[in-house]
């Protein structure tokens, strides 16, 4: 099996790695680069815990090959805060207790960031359908939806 040399950008930083052709971006992030914020809940694109943003598109990193990241921009949960300054979504997830166990949280934060980038004033229904690709088994989603609503208000400066 021939390794693939990849140059990419992750959270604004240039990164180079060698990966196997069948290795997923999730495996690269977690096992090669130590970025364990993205989680593997299923490995088949059904839970969203591994969500990252790839060139401005929300994707499951378990359904992207590491080799495909060549020349592209990857955003992960580790890049959401600026130093000590949390992203409004991170802050609102804390304030609303929008997490219990927290395993789905990185995926939700990334998906919500993508959602608000495309729709800064989503309705409750738009939030619910926009986040339907992310499974949470603890919260019943109530507090997640409220946290996203509140973060959207904050980000709009309302």
């Amino acid at each position: 099996m021939a390794g693939v040399a990849v140059s990419t950008t992750i959270n604004g930083d240039s990164v180079e790695y060698l990966c196997q052709p069948d290795e997923t971006l999730l495996e690269v992030l977690r096992d090669r680069l130590g970025l364990t914020g993205a989680k593997e809940g299923c490995g088949t694109g059904d839970c969203g815990a591994c969500s990252v943003i790839l060139d401005g598109r929300l994707v499951c990193s378990c359904l992207v090959l590491g080799a495909e990241a060549e020349g592209r921009q990857v955003e992960t949960v580790e890049g959401m805060a600026h130093g000590e300054q949390l992203h409004p979504l991170q802050q609102k997830f804390l304030e609303h207790a929008a997490l219990q166990c927290g395993i789905c949280t990185p995926g939700f934060l990334i998906a919500a960031k993508d959602l608000l980038a495309k729709n800064p004033s989503p309705t409750e229904e738009e939030i619910r359908f926009g986040l339907a690709g992310n499974l949470c088994r603890c919260t019943g989603y109530d507090k997640i939806v409220r946290a996203v609503q509140d973060a959207a208000n904050m980000m709009r400066g309302a």
């Binding site: 969500s51 959602l115 986040l131 339907a132 690709g133």
Partner: peptide, 9 residues
């Protein structure tokens, strides 16, 4: 087809 995440691909 699939989720928002899958839609991107």
């Amino acid at each position: 087809i699939g989720s928002k995440q899958v839609q991107g691909r």
